[in-house]
């Protein structure tokens, strides 16, 4: 038997994983993952290449069948709280040349509330407009997505997550193919969002950014090496255990994904 999920504190823990095991084509990438992401934190999932960062996110969200273990969001299975969980996938998981405009992408954030058949309401339109303004893409509403830069695209996808008004944002490598200014803008926006009580969990490969800006971190290397406040989780000892070297020892070194 596996440990029970924390039922009574359903609003204290945004995401809870118990003995999660997952992989691809019979090859196990992640095993024995036990994790409780506190609600309201600004969290990062870090680890070396192939350590299972994206696998963790995909298995938790059911995009990849976990071969063992379970995931709960706010104490419930995902199917019961879909509207409370917003997902921003990796850029290359989205059809590149799809005929869709920026505002149509952001409107998808309202579908968990409206379902696949009902019309969007005036309230939905307000949520969409506010989200696009927050990420600075209100002027691009009717621009086709394939005419946007990488940074603008990511602002649109973050606007979709904001429009959903979710309690937990899960982002998979949100800052790849994004210019430095967009990364800084989006990081501040996510920080402000956390201040309003939303939980953010982002897969990220840049340890320096994580140490400087994030509050909570999960360090992976096939399983959870450490989790907790960034300073503790990313201690020199833990990093050496995960990476086999001390990646933050030299100045200005980042570990690329």
């Amino acid at each position: 038997m596996t440990m029970a999920h924390p039922q009574q504190h359903e609003d204290a823990v945004a995401l809870s994983l118990r003995d999660l095991r997952a992989g691809y084509n019979g090859r196990t990438v992640l095993r024995g993952v036990d994790l409780d992401v506190p609600h309201g934190t600004f969290g990062a999932v870090v680890g070396p290449n192939g350590s299972g960062k994206s696998t963790l996110v995909k298995a938790a969200l059911g995009l990849l069948a976990a071969t063992r273990g379970s995931a709960r969001f706010f104490g419930s299975p995902l199917a019961r709280v879909r509207s409370r969980v917003a997902y921003v996938p990796q850029q290359d998981a989205v059809a590149e040349d799809f005929p869709i405009t920026a505002v149509q992408v952001v409107e998808m954030g309202r579908y968990p509330h409206r379902g696949w058949f009902r019309r969007l309401t005036a309230g939905d339109d307000v949520a969409v407009a506010e989200a696009m303004e927050a990420t600075g893409v209100q002027g691009l509403a009717n621009t086709p997505l394939d005419e946007l830069s990488g940074g603008q695209r990511q602002r649109v996808f973050l606007a979709r997550a904001l429009a959903q008004r979710a309690d937990l944002l899960i982002l998979d490598e949100p800052f790849t193919a994004v210019d430095a200014r967009t990364e800084a803008d989006l990081l501040s926006l996510l920080e402000r969002l956390c201040a309003t009580g939303v939980t953010v969990l982002a897969v990220h490969h840049d340890l320096r950014t994580v140490r400087d800006r994030f509050v909570y971190a999960v360090l992976l290397a096939g399983t959870v090496v450490a989790e907790g406040p960034v300073g503790d989780a990313l201690s020199a000892d833990n990093l050496e255990r995960a990476y086999g070297i001390a990646p933050l020892a030299q100045p200005a070194t980042t570990v690329e994904a």
Partner: peptide, 22 residues
């Protein structure tokens, strides 16, 4: 026509669509 929203979402962004229940 009836499944337009579902088919468009799942074709464009299968991961997001699956998370919201497609």
């Amino acid at each position: 026509l009836v499944w337009f929203r579902l088919l468009r979402s799942a074709s464009f962004d299968p991961g997001f669509s699956a998370v919201i229940g497609a």
